[in-house]
Design a protein around this nucleic acid. Sequence first.
DNA 1: TATGCGTAGT
Length: 701
Amino acid sequence: MAAAGAAKATAAAAASPVFRSNQELTRLARSGQLAAARRLFDSMPRRNTVTYNAMLSALARHGRIDEARALFDGMPSRNAVSWNAMIAACSDHGRVADARSLFDAMPGRDDFSWTLMVSCYARAGELDLARDVLDRMPGGKCTACYNAMISGYAKNGRFDDAVKLLKEMPAPDLVSWNSVLAGLTQSGEMVRAVQFFDEMVEKDKVSWNLMLEGFVRAGDLDGASTFFARIESPNVISWVTLLNGYCRAGSIGDARELFDRMPERNIVAWNVMLEGYVRLARIKEACKLFEEMPDKNSISWTTIISGLTRAGKLQEAKDLLDKMPFNCVAAKTALMHGYLQSKMIGDARQIFDGIEVRDAVCWNTMISGYVQCGMLEEAMLLFQQMPNKDTVSWNTMIAGYAQGGQMRKAVGIFRRMNRRNTVSWNSVISGFVQNGLFVDALHHFMLMRRNTTRADWSTYASCLSACANLAALQVGRQFHSLLVRSGHINDSFAGNALISTYAKCGRILEAKQIFDEMVGKDIVSWNALIDGYASNGHGTEAISVFREMEAKKIRPDEVTFIGILSACSHAGLIDEGLKFFNSMEKEYSLKPVAEHYACMADLLGRAGRLNEAFELVQGMQIKPNAGMWGALLGACRLYKNDELAQLAAEKLFELEPHKTSNYVLLSNISAEAGKWDEAEKARASIKEKGVHKPPGLAGST
DNA sequence: TATGCGTAGT
């Protein structure tokens, strides 16, 4: 009788308006329609705890943690689910301390709460703290809680601890086994994974799919397809995993064949296939597939719109977007991004303004678009208007000001940041380097270490560049050993920076040694070595490195030629230099740019072939820049050709009217030629034209 | 109807 009464009550509850609205709220939240969910929430005349909980996790799912917290704090009554949802929200966004204080303050902790806290610590890499929570769980550890800990160990490479805990469990389930397996396959430990998989007493589809994913991740597509054939009845995830493997490897033919063989295709399968085409810029096939898709969700729309914009078909993307039957911020942002890449700021802004509820990616895309166009004031205005700035927003502004030479503002923003990550530190450090403030760069590296923020290849590359510019050999050596210890020595970026550093400190032999030991040499490594030889006056060695490149069929790029031409110039190898210069376009279809012409002007000028140098510069397709005229002016001084000097100087004055040293140089040349009037005239123009040192800058200009 | 541990897509 009691059961019948309860059933009646449940039926009555299910029929109630609050219950039905709650269901709808959950449905909207799960399909990603946050704006609609919030509208419904706001319009509900009566709400219960479930209503608040549903809204809370909807906000959390969209990363709106602060709003979720405000809702939580203002809730009329909270149950365990409310607390757990709030803890989960903090955990999902790395707010470990907040999660912990909620956990501590929570009145009646249940299994969910303990599991969440273990998982939160484990995902933050705080395995000992996670273990502490697990061990303190009253009334026996629950299975999910054990599993969270096992997963934490396995995902952090502590496989032995994971297995040990698994063996201690009174009743491990499939999730326990699969957690260990996932750790192995996801960290590429395929040998151990195969062994573990064979030893598993019980396996389900997840186990098989994890193994399959492991083969795909390792790039072993043959192994993956063989393994796939062994799966008794592969489910959609198995099919999609292999399909995704083919797509990522660019084997679009195999992918399509597999796709056509699939017994049932869900939307993820369609999206993977679509993304496969888009990735290879096969836009026609992508559009055809998109048309054929039985269901399209926001990911499908985002993929096709970004495919069209990447193919430069902005109008088609816009037309298609106008037909989108629902509101998808990501797809609109993709079009915005396309406009911004093409510097169509107005069109991008129009899309931005038309988006009702913008997410952080949307804001950040627009801000970064302004930054890339050098419109820092507009970027800053938008940044200030942005309601929930994330780390990316802050980092974008820091990098923007740093690249724009406004280090004071960059540092100001950096100091005001709450949660700095590696990128934040890298942005200020590389900003200092780009603006010539090398000591500040190294100082901030020390602060970064004190802050225990992890350094990456980019950090090391910037710091090494600072060392190179300061010719700080000893500090450079310290970074070298840091690179070895942190395992970044095999990153080509860091290795390349190390080559340049040793070369710029005059240690070309050590540079060569790094180069020889490097595993993944790329074109930048070769260029760094050539440039190193060139700047140390070893022209012939630079050329022989170039010959080695040719022998190994490594294509030189524009930068290679800058190095090689300056090597010829320093070594006085005029004819070789001319030959290299001529081969650029003929043999490698590389168009010479300003820097190459400047090298040639320098090369011919140093050899005293001033007339040829002038002809070259004046016959260029591009407008000569100050560097070229400067090189010629220097050469004129060396060879005491004051007539040509006058010509070069005039051009230089036009381009750099405020640079004092140009006037001084011409004055000296004229004086050396005995033309005192000319010399005096040049000196006088410094005062006449109001040439002066810019205020606030020490040293000469 | 809302919250936790293991597998696929932007």
